[in-house]
Amino acid sequence: MVKPLILVTMGTNDYPFTRLYNAIKNDSLYTDNRCEWFIQTGSCEAPVAPACGVIEKIIPRADMEDLIRRSALVISHCGIGTLNLMLKYRKRVIFVPRVAAHDEFSDDHQLQIAREIKNQRMKVVFPDDQFPLLDYEQIKEDNKLSDPVDITNYDLAEIINQKLTG
């Protein structure tokens, strides 16, 4: 059986996200060969590689979609782009919003959107929360491919189309 994939994505902005890197590095699954990791770090330094997996600064969007499709668990900053993909592929996600107090972004807008997430498979770790221990049995259970659903708002898209071309 294919090892369950844990995907970590920190986005494409220029701010580091050491708090998230430290949280995953300190989990026992980071040094456990039963899981495969893919860690997209953006501008964050990640000197210690997982026992099994790779670290990349940035990858093309299509590659990211493929990784999400294959992943059993996604651990992510709380960017809109990632939220879109998680909804589209119906993944179990741990969101960690970037906050200005830790110099992880210029403002706290990720906290604003995090508070709007109402989904049983999406957990938000707010700044004062403890990062949860990763559950291998749950990750193993979620180790399956998923097909995307279309979540585009075509009513808005039609209004934009009229405004641009009408």
Partner: peptide, 10 residues
């Protein structure tokens, strides 16, 4: 919104 934030079959 550009996409639906609802619970899509979760």
């Amino acid at each position: 919104q550009a996409f639906d934030l609802g619970d899509h079959g979760h």
